[in-house]
Design a protein around this nucleic acid. Structure first.
Lengths: 138, 138
DNA sequence: ATACAATTCATACTTTAGTATGAGTACTAA
DNA sequence: TTAGTACTCATACTAAAGTATGAATTGTAT
């Protein structure tokens, strides 16, 4: 956050300096008015593009990042979350069991717990809910 | 596409006019150099922001748009695709049947066909595959 | 008119998913 | 040390999902 303020301040300062430089170079007759306007136009165009890109980039991030806090708030254990991710990947209980080297009945227990904690009736609904809560990747 | 070209052309024209106007207003002494520079800066800043927003918006769209051609290529019928969407929404066969006003056995038939056409073993896997193929909303 | 695809439905069946209950182990914090 | 939590597993059960087959209806294109 401090970094953003510093960069923004430096940017404004640079622009002000550019502003003054261009004014004096015109008044002293060293530079044509067209050149100054062109430079100003290009500089501010680039600044506009960059600032906008940064803002939109943050918006995209907020849509993709996983909300680890929410996972804890839901009371999902580490293992339950693992199982949830494998469910979303489309695996069956038996396949998840093989992948995590435990028995199928263990997976069934985890799945049941996940469904309760996500307030879902089925694993497909759990996938939807988990995505809406942004606790699994889209 | 033609629309874009027209708008872009009009924009360039407007900027050129602004450019000329500002140059003459300074040379005839009607306007202070600071005012002109400020206006140019603001205008090009806004143009930069808007153009960037449009470009990024199209990129986002390409990640979100549904590939209707692929749906046809897979041989998915209208009804089968409807059922697929409801599956992805997390509904059970019975719930889908009630929503679409048909029997559960009809839904089972559709689901089976969807699984074959998507080469999926389970409905959860079908959701994953459909998302990767971009035939259902993320 | 007929062949074809899409939709609908049923029955019977197998497989997978999900629930309920109880229990053993291991690790951690009070 | 004990209470709590997470993880594991089993058994027995119910519910849902998925398969296979056959069949009737409807609209559409040749």
């Amino acid at each position: 956050m401090r970094k953003t303020v510093l960069i923004f301040g430096a940017l404004v300062l640079a622009l002000l300096i550019l502003f003054q430089l261009s004014k004096y170079s015109v008044l002293t007759g060293n530079t044509a008015i067209e050149t100054v306007i062109a430079i100003i136009a290009i500089v501010f165009f680039v600044v506009g593009v960059l600032i906008n890109k940064k803002v939109l980039h943050k918006q995209q991030n907020s849509n993709q990042e996983i909300d680890h806090k929410k996972i804890k708030d839901l009371g999902l254990s580490k293992r339950e979350y693992e199982v949830l991710c494998e469910i979303a990947f489309g695996l069956s209980n038996k396949e998840i069991a093989n992948k995590l080297f435990v028995s199928e009945s263990t997976i069934k227990t985890h799945v049941s717990n996940v469904l309760v904690k996500l307030d879902a009736k089925r694993r497909t609904q759990a996938i939807q809910i988990a995505k809406n809560l942004q606790i699994i990747p889209q």
